[in-house]
Structures are given as structure tokens and as C-alpha cells.
């Protein structure tokens, strides 16, 4: 079960706009194991969606992967031709987007769009593809699937559309599913249903999953491991328990303080002050420095290295290094930095 299916190594992605180079992802690395769920969490503009789109190579025209490797079963897909990528997308790796209201094409029927996905990657004929589409819709819990096939997206509710998106993503049984904030645009009651659905389908099909979200609650429920991103870099990574109960990066602590829980119901929530950094002009030191209450001089000047807190937990924060130095421990430096 411990087979690494996807390895992202030192990935850099930038957008080249009129106002300059927007450095959205700045050297992130992670491994995804078969059947496991990796959560990527961070606020808007932290580079989490761009990381996801980089893996599918479906960035907007101005976006480009400027460095690093993305290894799928050992093959670097950043070197794939467009044709190879077309076989990869949908078949090896699928994605469910944030907004089901706009992610389906309004002028084609649900059936047309589902069958297209099926026929692209299998040699099924129309009739067989239709049967498969019905099967998929049943799987994701859409009632009256045959009728739905003939309907247009605007005739379905948001939750229903997201189910169709999921059916479409899973139709060719991909090895990896990327869920890019799959519940953000949905009603709270529907959110729970969709999350449950995704989780049960993942178990059933044995897929690896990357769940991109800014919802810590979703992470806690679904993920095995977690990456916290800020300014296109990884702040902290580890198992969900480690990060929730023993956060070691100031940004993660801030995120956790800003969500309500049973213990702080009566207090005011503490937001992280300030605004996300400008990706056009990244600071020399830690990206979170300007918003960090405990920032030190060195935070301004140098990027902290990622150090291990324990075998299931790593963080990139000078405060940890300071603590460790104070405790007289040797700083473990990651080989690649």
C-alpha cells in the first residue's frame, strides 16, 4: 500500500502578466501515496489551486511551470508532450473544480459531456458509453440517471452538478483525483453529502486524492496528511493530528485560531491580521513575516529551512530553529535545501 504514485519536487509556477511575473508557487515538494489523501490548505492566493492545476498542466495561457519536476510513477510529466498530457488528464489524473455552476458547459447536455469523457479514454461506442454514464451517475447518487443525461446543466441544482462533475472525473477510474475546493460553492447541508460521497468513492476505487481547501474542518475529516501553504511555499506538513494538536508554524497557528471549536465558542475568533502577500514581489525572508506576531530579525532576511519536529511532522519556521538551538539540539537540514 505504500507505493508513491505522485512526487512533486521543488515545483515553481509563475504567471507572466502585464504587471510582471506573479510567482504563485515557489518550490513546493510532496509525495502522494496510493490510496492516501493529501490535504493542501491555505488562504486565497497561497498557491494551492495553482499547484493542483500545475499537476494537470491546465494553467491559464499566461501560466508556466518554471522549475521542478512532477513525477507520476517515476515519469516526469512536465516533459510530456501535449498529446501525452491529453492521455494523462482524465485517465490518470482527474480534477473536480470548485464551482459546479460554471464548470459544466451550458450548451451541451449532461450526457454529452459525460460520454465525451468516457469515449476519450476508452474505445467504448456511444451506446456503451451511455451505459457507463448511467452507471456513473448512479454511483454518485444522482436519481433518474437516464433522464439526467438528456438534461442541460442549468436544469440541475448545484449539488447535482457537482455530483455530475465527480462522475465525469471518475468515469475513467483515474489513479489520482484532485478535488479543488469541491464544496466551497455548495450549501452546508450539501457539502457534507458531497464530502461523504468523495470519501466513499475514494475508498471504493482505491484512488489517491489531493484535496485542496481552505476549510480546516474538511481537512480534519478526510485527510491522512496535510500541507499548509503560504506565499507559494510549504509552511508546515505532517499528519492531520500532528498539525491540529501541535502546530509549529505561526501561520498554521493563526489558521487554527481563526476557526470556531467547542472550546472557544464564547470567545471572539482571532483572525490573522494583514493581507496576503503580493506574489509579484516576494520578500527575501519568510513570506509570512509581515503578518507574524512573533517575527524576529532573521525572519526578514533569510528563508527558514524545513526541519523535522518528529517523523510525522515538518515545519519551516525560525522559531522552531531558535527553540532547538536553545535546547542544544542539532538542526536537521533537509538534503535538498
Amino acid at each position: 500500500m505504500n507505493e508513491t504514485i505522485l512526487q512533486v519536487k521543488n515545483l515553481h509556477t509563475s504567471f507572466f502578466t502585464d504587471s510582471g511575473q506573479v510567482m504563485a508557487v515557489n518550490g513546493i515538494s510532496f509525495n502522494l501515496e496510493k490510496g492516501k489523501t493529501l490535504g493542501i490548505v491555505g488562504e486565497s492566493g497561497s498557491g494551492k489551486s495553482v499547484t493542483a492545476y500545475s499537476i494537470m498542466r491546465i494553467l491559464a495561457d499566461t501560466g508556466r511551470i518554471t522549475g521542478g519536476e512532477i513525477l507520476f510513477r517515476g515519469e516526469d510529466i512536465t516533459k510530456y508532450t501535449e498529446r501525452q498530457m491529453q492521455k494523462f488528464r482524465g485517465k490518470r489524473c482527474s480534477i473536480v473544480f470548485q464551482d459546479p455552476m460554471t464548470s459544466l458547459n451550458p450548451v451541451f447536455t449532461v450526457g454529452n459531456q459525460l460520454m465525451e469523457a468516457i469515449m476519450l479514454h476508452t474505445d467504448k461506442r456511444r451506446g456503451e458509453a451511455r451505459e457507463r454514464a448511467v452507471e456513473m451517475l448512479e454511483l454518485v447518487g444522482v436519481n433518474e440517471p437516464r433522464k439526467r443525461l438528456k438534461q442541460y446543466p442549468h436544469e440541475l441544482s448545484g449539488g447535482m452538478r457537482q455530483r455530475v462533475m465527480i462522475a465525469m472525473a471518475l468515469a475513467c477510474e483515474p489513479d489520482i483525483l484532485i478535488a479543488d475546493e469541491p464544496t466551497t460553492a455548495l450549501d452546508v447541508t450539501i457539502q457534507a453529502q458531497i464530502l461523504e460521497l468523495i470519501q466513499s468513492l475514494q475508498k471504493k476505487l482505491g484512488m489517491a486524492m489531493i484535496l485542496v481547501t481552505h476549510d480546516m474542518g474538511v481537512i480534519a475529516e478526510l485527510c491522512d496528511e496535510l500541507i499548509v501553504m503560504y506565499g507559494g511555499r510549504v509552511c508546515e506538513r505532517g499528519t492531520v493530528d500532528e498539525i491540529f494538536y501541535n502546530p509549529r508554524h505561526e501561520y498554521t497557528k493563526g489558521l487554527l485560531r481563526s476557526i470556531p471549536n467547542i472550546n472557544n465558542m464564547k470567545e471572539r475568533l482571532v483572525p490573522i491580521s494583514g493581507t496576503p502577500i503580493n506574489l509579484l514581489n516576494l520578500p527575501k525572508g519568510c513570506a509570512f513575516c509581515a503578518r507574524c506576531d512573533n517575527a524576529m530579525k532573521i525572519c526578514l532576511e533569510r528563508l527558514p529551512d524545513e526541519i523535522s519536529i518528529n517523523e510525522n511532522h515538518k515545519a519551516s519556521c525560525w522559531l522552531n530553529i531558535k527553540d532547538m538551538l536553545a535546547a542544544g539540539k542539532e538542526v536537521e537540514e533537509r538534503a535538498e535545501r
Binding site: 491546465i58 498530457m85 491529453q86 492521455k87 488528464r89 482524465g90 485517465k91 459544466l104 469523457a117 465525469m168
Partner: peptide, 10 residues
């Protein structure tokens, strides 16, 4: 978004 979806389908 639906154009991105189409690309993502391959």
C-alpha cells in the same frame, strides 16, 4: 471554467 473542465478531461 467549462473550457478548463474540457481540458482537464483530456
Amino acid at each position: 471554467d467549462y473550457v478548463r473542465t474540457a481540458r482537464a478531461k483530456g
